[in-house]
Nucleic acid binder design. Structure first.
Lengths: 103, 103
DNA sequence: CCGCTAAATTAGCAACTACTTATATTTTAA
DNA sequence: TTAAAATATAAGTAGTTGCTAATTTAGCGG
């Protein structure tokens, strides 16, 4: 079985995992993901929740969308974002278990 | 209880989590962590396992050490590294569950 | 002391990131 | 058709990252 030697041993998996983490490892992007955890939201909703410029949010959304983390739906002149990759959702929820203070 | 709204809601926790992920979200550093999962290793062992220059490995080890991810032990003229932060160990093992292909 | 090995540090640089400001696109509403 | 709102894109730039090559530090054996 050889379970103890390496945690991940395929270079391809290493690459995949580190790309995914890189997409998430930014305070604004992580906050976007946390805000989107419950429901889909329009860009303006996200701007209001997260708190930076519309342009900046839009650029971070594009990064997450292009990497397949977020999916979008257009309704009239608004665009709604949601977490489209179940692995990311799981990853973010695991982050909470590991890093969040409890009270 | 309000469980569904946000996954992580404290900005401080967001910061902590994204800093931790940033440290890990690099192919060489993730590989180092995977190699160190089972046992402590000397720098030269890590260089051999991971495969880049000694200088490069040393710099990545310094990053991980300075962020509290790795701990060190010196023996004669060699330095042994191990994963010193249990949260990181848990995080990397969770990464495997989420991202690794199974056969 | 000297030479050898292991590891860390430094300097320099190309590439990339994250932001700001400004502009463009799309859609609705008057 | 024009104005306004929502979103995206573009351009410019300061700051950061990741590497290489060269040097330095430290411990060991002769």
């Amino acid at each position: 079985m050889e379970m103890t030697s390496k945690l991940i041993d395929k270079d391809e998996d290493i690459m995949q995992a580190s790309l995914a983490m890189k997409a998430i490892a930014h305070p604004l992007r992580l906050k976007i993901l946390c805000v989107l955890a419950g429901s889909e939201l329009s860009v303006q909703d996200i701007v209001d929740s997260v708190g930076t410029s519309q342009s900046n949010i839009s650029q971070h959304l594009a990064i997450l969308r292009d990497k397949g983390v977020l999916a979008t739906r257009k309704d009239a002149n608004r665009v709604f974002y949601r977490i489209g990759d179940p692995r990311t959702l799981k990853l973010v929820s695991m982050m909470r278990d590991v890093f969040c203070s409890r009270e």
